[in-house]
Structure formats: structure tokens, C-alpha cells
Design a protein around this nucleic acid. Sequence first.
DNA 1: GCAGGGCGTTAAGGAACCGTCAAGGATCGG
DNA 2: CCGATCCTTGACGGTTCCTTAACGCCCTGC
Lengths: 228, 228
Amino acid sequence: MTRVLIVDDEPQMLRALQINLQARQYTVATAPDGTRALDDAARTPPDAVILDLGLPGIDGVDVIRALRVWSTAPVIVLSGRSDAADKIAALDAGADDYVTKPFSMSELLARLRAVLRRPATEEPIAGSAVIGDHLVDLTSCTVRRIGAGEPAVRLTPTEWRILTVLIQHPGRLVTGRHILLSVWGPGHERKTNYLRVYLAGIRRKLERDPAHPRHLLTEPGMGYRFEP
Amino acid sequence: MTRVLIVDDEPQMLRALQINLQARQYTVATAPDGTRALDDAARTPPDAVILDLGLPGIDGVDVIRALRVWSTAPVIVLSGRSDAADKIAALDAGADDYVTKPFSMSELLARLRAVLRRPATEEPIAGSAVIGDHLVDLTSCTVRRIGAGEPAVRLTPTEWRILTVLIQHPGRLVTGRHILLSVWGPGHERKTNYLRVYLAGIRRKLERDPAHPRHLLTEPGMGYRFEP
DNA sequence: GCAGGGCGTTAAGGAACCGTCAAGGATCGG
DNA sequence: CCGATCCTTGACGGTTCCTTAACGCCCTGC
């Protein structure tokens, strides 16, 4: 059964969506704000998320980002605002579609079918990894020194994105081109010097001996590999 | 470089899209109608398609269906019609997104980034093979010594490409010309000495007795054969 | 027996790649 | 406005890899 998480603070809208989805045999979970949505998603991972942007508390775009750290479930954004800037922010944060209110229920259902159609969830995503004597946790974006409890190391946003790509393919080779596409987007495939700079930084922060890495390996001419 | 096929019958719109996409480093192909779009897509498969629904000739929805028979490239539909019924028809035919005119160019670009973000790569069929006491895994580009867990052997990019060609035709003869074409491309069919050098290197790394190979065999005057 | 072609092996030069450092620009918050 | 942080960019030295040439072996046909 396909599991859909609906996040909306208006009870009416929540109820309307819930009824329509359940009538189509979807399993529905609901949350009234971003915090509880992330909580529910972490406990029982959904197959898709319908997310209202006008939430109390956390900003909707931040909810998408937090979700994208560990989940690839498609996210359809609902919003009353039709500004291009809002749409771009949500889509670039990781949303799969953006629907402005008022919307047709049957259109929303068609868009839901569209995002669910693609090759369901691929490989289970690793949420954490051990590098050197550090525990890297992608779900909470923290690095703790093993033994000590203090988050001694801080990584920059770009460093997190690169690490995420590598850790999500444990043991496998990841080409430089793939990292550049995932992190910087199309048009940056040639800037291999970025990788050199950032990998050096990440290794300096995490590896025990940055000059002789044991987990973040370089395959000359091929790319990089995270070796658990 | 990401390749985008734009299908639109209005030269103005076509040109505007083309300029904007090329400025973002996309490779752009264009087609004025459905027939030529399908033709172009079949010849050089695009990574994404932007499709105007108001086309002369074939109906846009049929173009989507025809494309979906063999391609999984994401399709973004442009349309002047905002009826829910039209959207549903296009989305259920296999489109990934539906944008109504007039639209913001930056929004369209964001939606393009969103649909291109997905798994992106249908992985080329790969496999694994046992050579000597080594397990060669093409999907992760690793060589592990059977028994031990350490990846003791490292192969260079060219060695991987040659091995891939051979392993993907197990038990069958592969001509030297075919390997040279696959690995070095057209114009290098005569450089058979490359093969001698690299096959020697691969055998030295993988075969138990490189002088008397048991898996990477030479067929004198013909080519090479991978014997599982 | 001998010449010749195809193949295996080795070594060296040059190109491409990678790690490192440092400086300049962009962005954000105070 | 200023400082801090992060991203971008260029340069340099070291390493790996690709290319090329040379030499020896084996087999074949004469």
C-alpha cells in the first residue's frame, strides 16, 4: 500500500485530502506542522509527501531540505503563493512538484501518480557512517567524535552535500562528474578542482590521517569512493 | 553534458528556450513537431524533453506515449490550456510535469532541475566475474581478493573499460577492433599494440599465472575472449 | 632451417590528474 | 559598516596514467 504523508495546518484541507486519497486506496498519515511531519516521516517513512508551505513554525522549504537529507520520497508542495521565486526555492530545495491553490483535486491526484510512477525507492539510504574516529549522521547533520559526546567538528553546507552523495553509495565508485552534477547542478561537470579542494577539507576534518585516507578514497582518473 | 530536447512549433518560443538553456550549459536539440521530435529522440536519446502540447500533426499526448515506450527521460509539458482534464491526460500518459503558459522562465528551469535530479542514470547493465582469485565487480568498480576482504588490486580507467567490454560478452570472442572502438573510439582501430600492453597489465593484476591465463584468453589472429 | 608476422614484456617520456595552499569575492549577521 | 564564514579560482609540485618504441618469443609457411 502506498503511504502518503500530508502536511497542512488547515483541518479542512487536511480532511479533504485525506478522504480523497483514502478513497483511492492510499494509506494516509497527517501532520499539522513541519516538526511533527519530520518526526512522523522518520518513524514510518512515507512513499510520498504532500506539503503545504504556509505552515506555523518551521519554514516549509526547510522541511523539504531536512527530509531530503535522508529520504528520496517525492514531495509535492501546495501553496497559496504563485510567485516564481517561491516555486524555485521549493523546487531547488528538493521538491518534485509545486501546485498553487486553488487547485483541482483530480489534477493533484494525477501529479501524485506522476511522481509515484518512477522507479520506486531505490536502494535503502544509509543514514550514518563512521569515518576515522567520527560518527557522521546524515539525518541530523551532526558529526560526533566517537567516545566523546561533543559535536567537535562542523561541516559547511557544500561539504555535507558531497559527503551525502558519497555515503549514500557505500563501497561504490562515484565519478567526479556525478558529484559535481549532484552538488553544483548541470554545467559544472568540468570544475574538478572544486572536488579536490572540498575533499581535502573533508578529509582534514574527518580522517585520522588526512594524507592517507582510509574511508574517503581517490580512484585516480575515475572518481571517489566511500569505504565503510 | 545534459541533453534537452525542446519540441515547439512557435519559432519564438523555441528560440527563447534554446538560448536560456544553452546559457545554463545544457546541450539543446529542437524539433518543430511530434514526428521530428520522436525521430530526433530515437537517434540521440535526450536526458529530458520539454514538449509543447499545441503541436501540428500528432497530438502531444500521443508523443508522450510513443516516447514512453522506450525512454524514461523526464518530460515537461508546456501548454496554453489550464483545464484539469488536459493536465491529467498528459500526466497519466507519462509526463513528469505540466506548466501552463504564460510561465516564468526561471520557474521552468527550476522544474527542469527538479525532474533531472532524480536517479538520473539508468545504470548500464553491468555484472561481476571471477578471474584468478579475484572477484571483479563492474557496478562498484572494485576488485576484491576472494577470501580476504581488502581491495588489494586497483585498475586504471582504461583497464576498467577493456575489462567491461570483455566481461559483458562472457565466453564469446571479441575482436581487437571492437575493443579498440569501444574504448578509444573511432580512428584507433589499428593500434593493436595498446591491447597487448593493457591485456598484459590486466593479466598481471588479476590472473593467477599471467603467463598462462585461464580467463582472459588470446585467440591468435582473431581477438580476445573472457572465459568465466 | 629461416624469414616474417602476431603476441607478450618492459621501460621511458610526456600528458593528465590529484593534493595542497593561498588569495579574492560573495554572503550573512551584527 | 565591519567581521566571519564560506565559496570560488589560480598556481605549483608530486603522482598516476597513457602513449610509444624497442626487443624477444612462438608459431607458421616456405
